[in-house]
Design a protein around this nucleic acid. Structure first.
Lengths: 223, 223
DNA sequence: CCGGCATTTAGGGGTTACCCTGACATAACT
DNA sequence: AGTTATGTCAGGGTAACCCCTAAATGCCGG
């Protein structure tokens, strides 16, 4: 857009972090902070209004988070480059962010210099990724695909089938489940067969693994 | 120590956060930042050298974390007051921190004003706790006690008994377990009874809840 | 040194749960 | 009106579960 100054909008729900980022970026004469946002919603509004070259966005914000805001921002006509900041090296968030259209990914404890470099790189249109992030990419992609498949399968079940799946995984017997739901044990049998036909869960270990991966058992076990 | 100026040391592994904190604290004339540290180890050294009134410490730092550094600092002759900063409202860390000797606990997205107030309070010797943190305290204490009890119970079992417990919770039948461990299904029955006698797990749902709370199922379900 | 005590192993027999096949009712969508 | 999805239930054979009893091993202490 302009070859002289890189305009930046900061999005982070912590005022101290925004102060710190501004302090760092003031040391770079070719970078100017033209706006700030306290959450994803504000970030979208501010970016639409100010049209910066780069958005420096926190990964975890209340309300609309960094990933959702990134997706939203990519819908604009001339989308800004987006550089994601994250507190720790949580590579499991990398894939959906890149899918959402982020151009870079940086840990907050990186050197000040690294932030400035990253902003310049994404402003030029390059991607900025830490070493190691790329390695985690392939592994993570596979895991997410499989988890997404299972989630879809789970959602394809009817309400009753989902209840029976959860209760079987939690270890209840057919008759127990019938008593809890006020239906016959024989009816529970039928749901078991439908679940097997639909998503292939045959024996109890299959149920338990499936439920653990989708986090269905955590709620039941908390006191 | 002195009734005029509160001396502060900042400990956070993110330079941007330290910049931001300094910017906020410069607005308070009665507070002076006299030192900084990038991790728990440095924090201990710096505090021993400078003897500040208050240490503002990040919860999560590489190497020695905030909790460990807090414990360390409490060993000094005239220990500084310690104010813990945390990124999100993770109340589960509250109890060990207070045990370690922290005087206050503050989320980073709190208003700037709140940080200044908190520093003044802990400098006076008062405790600063967010509302809700105290409420979470009793609940958290109970949960920890119960979890510790269950962990002790689990460790009181023999190796074989632990194996059978995990496999039952994972959903395997007696004969399946026997085949996996090369023992008779009848032997598995015996272990079930012993587990019931020792820690009171009678039916499968008891096994599943127990195993979920101790995290025994997570490893099995990961692909 | 030997007699409890914990651990691992196993069988018999009664009760219960599981699996498969088949069936019917309602609502929704075609 | 016919198909599909969903919720409900039953019968009967096979398999698992539960309770009681009991053997062999190994270890620690009187």
């Amino acid at each position: 857009m302009d070859n002289d100054v890189i305009t930046v909008v900061l999005a982070d729900d912590h005022a101290v972090v925004r102060y710190g980022l501004k302090a760092v970026l003031q040391t770079a004469p070719d970078i100017t902070v033209i706006g700030e946002a306290r959450n994803g919603r504000e970030a979208v509004d501010t970016v639409m209004r100010l049209k910066p070259d780069v958005v420096v966005m926190d990964l975890s914000m209340d309300g609309m988070d960094g990933a959702a805001a990134t997706r939203e921002l990519q819908r604009l006509e001339s989308p800004a480059r987006i550089l994601i900041l994250t507190m720790h090296a949580e590579d499991e968030y990398l894939v959906p962010l890149l899918e959402a259209g982020a151009s870079g990914y940086l840990v907050k404890n990186a050197a000040d210099r690294e932030l400035v470099d990253a902003i310049r790189m994404v402003a030029r249109g390059d991607q900025y990724l830490r070493l190691g992030a790329v390695r985690a990419l392939a592994k993570e992609l596979k895991k997410r695909e499989h988890r997404a498949l299972e989630q879809t399968q789970y959602e394809s079940l009817s309400d009753r089938e989902r209840s029976i799946l959860r209760l079987i995984a939690a270890g209840y017997t057919g008759p127990d489940i019938g008593a809890q739901l006020n239906i016959s044990a024989k009816t529970v049998d039928t749901y078991k067969q439908r679940i097997q036909e639909k998503i292939g869960l045959a024996h109890r270990p299959d149920y338990v693994r499936f439920a653990v991966r989708l986090g269905l058992l955590d709620e039941e076990a908390r006191m």
